[in-house]
């Protein structure tokens, strides 16, 4: 990579490249089972083993583990500004996954959000089509504090009756966006919330009720 390609002021490219999974086969399998369990049981908190990853900030070990588990050269990835500004993050993702990094949100299979409080809209990502709803994006929100208490109640496939759920930071309009996302089922994006050691997911099939305390 030449200096010309460096768009950011931070000169992180000279730092040695952080290692990937120590055991690519087993670490990816464990990562996937955790993500699958999270997606199959919306709102449940699932501890994610990170296989000793020490990715460059603002990537976190949990987000890096998700990326290494799911991304490859078949999955265009969109990064929000704080991620896109970091050459080290891009180099890490490109080297370990081979995923092309795209500038248009609608082209992405996965979106990595470092700053969820400023995520303006879920609608800018690929929503899938009625004929191919599977072509929609999966949006991964970083730095979340997750809990099974709070005003948001989840129901639908994967939930026996109802689950309380809260996460943050997210934007003020976020839960309205998630409701709108569910309303267009089977189209819509799927969400993964990455905490410091655990994750949760909200597929588009989950219904949201917000109850004021």
């Amino acid at each position: 990579m030449t200096a010309l390609n460096q768009t950011s002021g931070q000169n992180q490219t000279s730092a040695p490249l952080a290692a990937g999974f120590a055991d690519p086969v087993q670490d990816a399998q464990r990562g996937f089972r955790t993500i699958m369990n999270a997606m199959a049981r919306p709102g449940s908190l699932q501890a994610l083993a990170t296989g000793g990853l020490k990715p460059p900030a603002p990537l976190t070990p949990v987000v890096a583990a998700i990326a290494l588990t799911l991304f490859d050269y078949d999955t265009p990835v969109w990064l929000d500004v704080p991620f896109a500004r970091s050459e080290a993050v891009k180099t890490f993702l490109r080297f370990h996954t081979g995923a092309p990094i795209v500038s248009e949100p609608v082209e992405a299979g996965f979106a990595l959000i470092a700053d969820p409080a400023h995520l303006s809209s879920l609608g800018k990502f690929h929503q899938g089509t009625l004929e191919y709803p599977d072509r929609s994006a999966t949006v991964i929100l970083t730095g979340q504090t997750l809990s099974n208490e709070g005003p948001v109640h989840l129901s639908g496939p994967g939930i026996e009756t109802e689950t309380a759920f809260s996460t943050g930071p997210v934007s003020l309009a976020f839960w309205d966006q998630v409701k709108a996302n569910n309303a267009q089922f089977p189209r819509g994006v799927d969400l993964i919330f990455a905490g410091s050691a655990e994750i949760a997911a909200l597929p588009r099939s989950t219904m949201i009720t917000v109850r004021e305390a």
Partner: peptide, 24 residues
């Protein structure tokens, strides 16, 4: 191989997100 597993894993996640829909 791992690339094939990843491709199938992604299909499984989309399948879970849209219950009953057949993911190619």
């Amino acid at each position: 191989d791992e690339q094939t597993k990843r491709m199938i894993r992604r299909a499984i996640l989309k399948g879970i997100a849209v219950p009953g829909y057949q993911v190619p």
